[in-house]
């Protein structure tokens, strides 16, 4: 069993030289089968819109002049994209994906989420596409010996 100090040292070593300025991004979380769109890096509150959509809200936006919403996630992404005709062999246009979400989940909450939160975030962050590997893989962590 490692001590907290040893774990801290391991984490510091793992990220040495790997830090950089955050950029708005969209990526596919293979292990949890979800797309994550992150416009700002901060402490967030996750709020579910429905079982597939979650919005990310800055925990401390009230103390600043920043906007409250900083990202969102789409769960069951691989299945959803396959069912709605997206080609998993090429990057997926997020705007088209949001159109498909609106059609798949009609209702005020999803409409507010898509048009009031998701579209402005991807537009302001210039987040246009996301890649979903067609074959499930593993996390990009260091290879075990």
């Amino acid at each position: 069993m490692k001590t907290p100090e040893e774990i801290g040292a391991l984490v510091r070593d793992a990220f040495t030289g790997a830090t950089g300025e955050f950029r708005p991004c969209a990526f596919f979380d293979d292990r949890l089968d979800c797309i994550r769109v992150i416009a700002r890096d901060c402490s967030v509150l996750e709020t579910r819109i429905n079982p597939y959509l979650t919005v990310l809200e800055d925990n401390y936006y009230r103390e600043t002049d920043r906007k409250p919403y900083v990202g969102f996630t789409i769960k069951g992404a691989r299945h959803f994209c396959s069912q709605h005709g997206f080609d998993l062999n090429s990057p997926i246009d997020i705007s088209a994906l949001l159109d498909a979400i609106l059609k798949a989940f009609p209702g005020v909450a999803v409409e507010l989420f898509v048009n009031g939160v998701a579209r402005p975030l991807v537009k302001e962050g210039k987040i246009e596409r996301v890649e979903i590997p067609s074959v499930s893989g593993s996390l990009p962590h260091p290879h075990p010996v």
Binding site: L32, L45, T47
Partner: peptide, 9 residues
Amino acid sequence: SIEKWNWVK
């Protein structure tokens, strides 16, 4: 592995 963490209501 820790997959993710966040605040939730």
